[in-house]
Design a protein around this nucleic acid. Structure first.
Length: 368
DNA sequence: CCATCCCGCCAATAA
DNA sequence: TTATTGGCGGGATGG
């Protein structure tokens, strides 16, 4: 149902939709997802609900959810159902990842450790649904953890987006590499040299997906290698090193939220055709009329936060961080559902929560 | 050109 | 069986 695509028929006179790819990116979707569910008392998230409200196919929700789960924000509860853990769960999840990575690592006595972390099932957040040991005989391998079985005839779980995400993150957390290109990551993560062609290609594709999501959450950032000119990613999420207490101070760049509605390119007003069903009833989660007013933050009278390529906007300072609110508002999402409308106002709050709950500490640059 | 990565077919898995 | 999950790679988009 709802085969939605670039469709420009029906009226040969209207502005044909240009189809801006960025509007459909996983990064944007992630931002929207986060904004949508970071609200007050969200505890359970239904995949169908998410897909509907975000206006995307189910498949994309799986992508998002898998990577978010890898970082602790979500936890799978049941079929079609995830539990919202929130940003506060991130630090621990990352710490766990780091520990695991460190443990699994350091194989050889060599100083150089090119890790090949591989399988590792669900992260244990202790206080969690402890499933009963319901292992049936028909599952040969259920107990296996360390000692990478190089004969990975394993299930396809090894290739899951979630695991890839975790391993990717571990790379940043456990290695001294501060800049990692996706190509290198792919080679590193798929261990031995059994590829050479499409294997890497495919892996890199997945890493792009992951990187987009992680970027939208500001865990990583894409930059161009100074010398090599090649694009790579740098970790800028919170890192541990907080001895016992973490300072709850500022995080990444101060946000300046401008929620100026803006669109990507030509206005696509041909999107009302798919409004055949306008059921705006709150599908599943009851929408409580919580505080929606952007009380806390005032939108700075900011100009045109451009997005990726800063190109001399009216701003004199070339220093500029891109945060996802701006990002999201810049690319006018054309998902239907007017729930999206509130999202924008909630971006600010979401961001605030994120800042206060998580003690990001990498003192990345701040403008001003 | 080449880096990026969306779309959705269709196969594993779960109910 | 059907429904849910989600690898996987073609090929379009954007630079």
């Amino acid at each position: 149902m709802a085969l939605r695509s670039a469709d420009m028929s029906t009226e040969s006179g209207s502005k044909y939709t240009p189809y801006c790819r960025k509007q459909k990116s996983l990064g944007l979707l992630c931002s929207n997802f986060l904004s949508l569910y970071n609200r007050d008392g969200v505890e359970s998230i239904g995949l169908d609900d998410a897909a509907t409200r975000l206006g995307v196919e189910r498949r994309r929700i799986y992508d998002i959810v898998n990577v978010l789960e890898s970082v602790g924000i979500l936890a799978r509860k049941a079929k079609n159902r995830y539990t919202w853990k929130g940003f506060q769960a991130i630090p621990k999840a990352l710490q766990d990842l780091k520990n695991e990575g460190l443990k699994e690592n350091c194989h050889g006595a060599d100083g150089n450790c090119s890790e090949k972390v591989s399988d590792d099932d669900e992260d244990e957040t202790y206080s969690d649904t402890n499933n009963l040991s319901q292992n049936n005989k028909s599952n040969p391998n259920s107990f296996r953890k360390l000692s990478e079985p190089k004969k990975s005839g394993d299930n396809r779980k090894e290739k899951s987006l979630g695991l890839l995400t975790q391993n990717f993150v571990k790379l940043f957390l456990c290695t001294d590499m501060e800049l990692i290109s996706l190509d290198d990551a792919a080679k590193l993560l798929l261990g031995d040299g059994k590829h050479t062609s499409m294997t890497t290609r495919t892996k890199v594709r997945r890493l792009y997906d992951i990187a987009n999501v992680l970027s939208s959450m500001k865990f990583i950032e894409k930059i161009h290698h100074p010398e090599t000119r090649k694009p790579a990613f740098r970790w800028l999420g919170l890192q541990e090193n907080g001895p016992a207490n973490e300072s709850k101070k500022r995080v990444f760049g101060t946000d300046l939220t401008n929620s100026t509605l803006k669109r990507c390119k030509v206005d696509g007003n041909a999107e009302l055709q798919l409004q055949k069903q306008v059921k705006h009833q709150s599908s599943e989660n009851e929408v409580d009329t919580s505080r929606t007013s952007a009380k806390s933050f005032q939108f700075g009278p900011f100009a045109p936060v451009n997005v990726p390529k800063v190109e001399a906007s009216g701003n004199g300072k070339p220093k500029q961080v891109i945060d996802w609110e701006s990002l999201a508002s810049t690319y006018r999402p054309q998902y239907h559902n007017q729930a999206l409308r509130d999202l924008f106002s909630h971006y600010v709050e979401a961001w605030k929560s994120w800042c206060s709950e998580v003690a990001g500490k990498k003192p990345i640059q701040l403008m001003s």
